[in-house]
């Protein structure tokens, strides 16, 4: 699970259309935890609804809660894995490429020369799994900030340093 902080400025002629690097495996777990937390209120709601219409006996018992549970399980087990597979990044000597989206694919490239500032964030779930989100900001209206979640925390910091170093070198 230990992702080597490998910000190797690989061959500068890296192709932007190659298959991107995959994220830290813990990212899928973090997504699962987040989906579970979102699903809990809906499950509680479904149980309350069950209890409320129990006397009326309009529909078979457990139909509402059962449906919600099945959907929640599908969202928790299946979707995070697919989202994890859909995401990726590619870092080369002078640019960062971020690929994301399950249905709506978005493939963004930001040259380091246009980066305004860089954030590395961790929310509690990310901290637990040892991953972080790298956000780079540009001056353009579209893609004013491009975030790349699910990087190993040390890797995220190294990438930040690498990008920052590049900016400084260019300006001096």
């Amino acid at each position: 699970m230990d992702h080597a902080p490998a910000v190797t400025p690989a061959a500068a002629s890296i192709d932007d259309d190659d298959a991107p690097t995959r994220l830290h495996p813990n990212y899928a777990h973090a997504l699962r935890v987040r989906t579970t937390l979102t699903a809990i209120p809906f499950l509680i709601g479904a149980l309350v609804a069950e209890a409320a219409i129990r006397k009326a006996a309009l529909i078979p018992q457990g139909l509402i809660a059962g449906t919600v549970l099945v959907i929640a399980l599908a969202l928790i087990i299946r979707v995070p894995a697919r989202r994890y597979n859909a995401r990726g990044y590619q870092i080369s000597a002078d640019r960062l490429r971020v690929v994301r989206g399950l249905l709506f694919r978005v493939d963004t490239v930001v040259p380091f020369g246009r980066v305004q500032h860089i954030d590395v964030q961790q929310d509690p779930i990310e901290r637990f799994f040892g991953i972080a989100t790298l956000t780079i900001h540009t001056a353009g209206n579209h893609n004013a900030s491009v975030s790349l979640p699910g990087l190993g925390e040390p890797l995220a910091r190294d990438m930040r340093e690498a990008i920052r170093g590049h900016i400084r070198r260019e300006t001096v």
Partner: peptide, 23 residues
Amino acid sequence: HSVEIAQGPLARLRGYATVQFGL
């Protein structure tokens, strides 16, 4: 400032994309 290629499900099926530039 940046270049993005975006594709919806239909666009992926039919092989075209929207190119968004950061201006």
